[in-house]
Design a protein around this nucleic acid. Structure first.
Lengths: 333, 333
DNA sequence: AGAATAGGTGTAAACGTTTGCACTTTTTTG
DNA sequence: CAAAAAAGTGCAAACGTTTACACCTATTCT
């Protein structure tokens, strides 16, 4: 990389002002006389001057960049969260550095440290399992952090979520009212806070409240093929209704059932918990807990902008409304 | 943001060496005596020193950051390309700044300029329509740029693609051999280079070669509902085989057909051109031109690392092999 | 042994901005 | 109309690194 062609210094010389004045013009500081401003602007145009954001970052100690921590970009759940974040970030002129942390050479803490070293002004964390080291890193830094679609039960980092317990209970209730009594829950990482603290307890509570003794919790079902392969086990266990946290797993179960000649929802009801595109294009379309993913991202990013500007944030643990979207994978009687 | 707690200067003082030596240790320069290195390392650990990447970037003129330009994060096509890029980027210790440029407040040129101002070491462009202004920006900068999944017919920017003409011809041929003679092509942006220079010409050439006079090109079909709504038109036009560039549009057509009580592939054959997850989970599963999206991203990023290091790159316009994946949406006789 | 080379370290300038402070000029005020 | 306040501008230090250059010491070579 060469030395920068045109610097603020060149502009200053050419416009016969000091670099301080050029800097003020560039930053829209209004303590500049109109004629001066115009002259500087003209020179900037003429020389094609573009500020060096790295130098700005060093001098001002703000990089207008935020870091996103996400397990996997190709999971629509995170993609949609990210889109909400991205739109608001753009609105506030922030760029986004995305770090995927699943199946990686680099450990999560390292990835986050790298983000912090880049002096991001804030971080949005969307992964579902905050390791101790990660929490430690978040505590050591004074870079604001917001969790989106996840929570943390040790510290109280700001978060944007839905009421998982309520949503799951409602979903289970739907199937129960359809006459399904052998209900199961299928989750990815059982140690993810959302699962261990909200979803699984909600499921257990539901069984208890309805005097159901048979508990069917299937863990580590992470993708389409995990779901596909799980189906035979569901049959074996006599499950007639299942709530699945990941859409792709749910679709795997669905297709496995169909390929086995079974009927959904008659033989098996399925409710999934993200409402990404994939859940709505399959047939029968899946009944979903529709999380407002885009909005969750947007709200998280908005909150982060406030934190980055040291503005007051009244509520740092926001729960957004969800919707139980009844489609064809449940009877809905 | 406060002043940085621990700087290289603090480490130098504590370890009783110069900052130059600390810098050498941090950067793994081996012109440092072992004992000195160990001492410095110890102090670094003890003080929790972390280098400020912004300052490094300013001084070294390398930010170890690359910019990704993408229309839409929630489109699995781009998500999978991005994943390939991301994995290789991680391998070479680069971070990624993603900029989505569709439906935005900010124009593409501005978004790219913002990336360049951040002094990214390289850019991977995945959008499908290079505007003149964008090309101009790419020409003015000496930051290397690689196109992934798209081409440019004016300049010759490095690119990683598949042989679209050949792939489409093969797909059309498949349907033709199944006895479908009223073939259609459905694309998104008709002015996207890939469409205007490769796909559409391939389609026209195919018709010509087979003495088919009826041409059915549907443009601006960008998403699921566009596809869903297009179906009735396809029926009206007597189309019995269609090649669709976007998976979500293809799925829209498919579901529309099914909801109308028609049979795929008997009444209508569908081939789609990306092979994202969405094409394989619907039933009937869609026959696809399987583009090696992950690999395309990975190869593009690898090429970019070479360009960023001024290494020689023998072939700057790489075509990767694709596969015509026959599934249930074609008869395959 | 003396010369040549390699290894190890420090000094200080550079990277391209922002910003506190001081100063000058203009505008407002009573 | 003078004094006070506000507006406009420049100077120079700071931000936290890297790196060219110089220097000194230890090693290798003839």
């Amino acid at each position: 990389m060469h030395k920068q062609e045109v610097t603020i210094y060149d502009v200053a010389r050419e416009a016969k002002v000091s670099m301080a004045t050029v800097s003020r013009v560039v930053n829209g500081n209004n303590n500049v006389r109109k004629e001066t401003r115009d002259k500087v602007m003209e020179v900037i145009k003429r020389l094609h001057y573009q500020p060096n954001a790295v130098a700005q970052g060093l001098a001002s100690k703000r990089t207008t960049t935020v870091g996103l921590v996400v397990p996997d970009l190709t999971n629509l759940y995170f993609a949609e969260l990210s889109k909400g974040i991205d739109d608001i970030a753009l609105l506030y002129k922030y760029n986004i550095i995305i770090t995927s942390i699943e199946n990686r050479l680099m450990k999560e803490e390292q990835a986050i440290q790298s983000l912090l070293n880049k002096q991001v002004d804030g971080v949005i964390y969307m992964s579902n399992r905050l390791s101790d080291k990660t929490l430690e890193a978040f505590e050591r830094t004074n870079t604001p952090v917001v969790l989106a679609g996840t929570k943390d039960n040790h510290t109280d980092l700001p978060s944007v979520t839905i009421d998982y317990k309520k949503a799951d209970t409602e979903a289970l209730n739907l199937m129960f009212n359809d006459g399904k009594k052998n209900l199961a829950m299928v989750v990815g990482d059982p140690n993810a806070v959302v699962n261990s603290e909200y979803r699984i307890p909600a499921y257990k509570q539901f069984l208890k409240d309805h005097n159901i003794s048979e508990e069917h919790i299937y863990t580590n079902i992470k993708d389409y093929s995990d779901g596909y392969n799980l189906y035979s086990q569901l049959v074996k266990d006599g499950v007639d209704g299942v709530i699945v946290t990941r859409d792709s797993s749910a679709v795997g179960i669905l297709n496995s059932a169909i390929d086995a000649g079974r009927n959904v929802p008659e033989d098996l009801e399925i409710v999934t918990a993200s409402a990404t595109q994939i859940a709505s294009v399959v047939r029968p379309a899946l009944t979903t807990i529709k999380q407002p993913l885009y909005d969750m991202g947007a709200v998280a990013m908005r909150m982060l902008t406030k934190l980055m500007n040291n503005e007051e944030v009244d509520d740092t643990n926001i729960e957004l409304p969800y919707e139980l979207l009844k489609k064809q994978s449940t009877l809905n009687q």
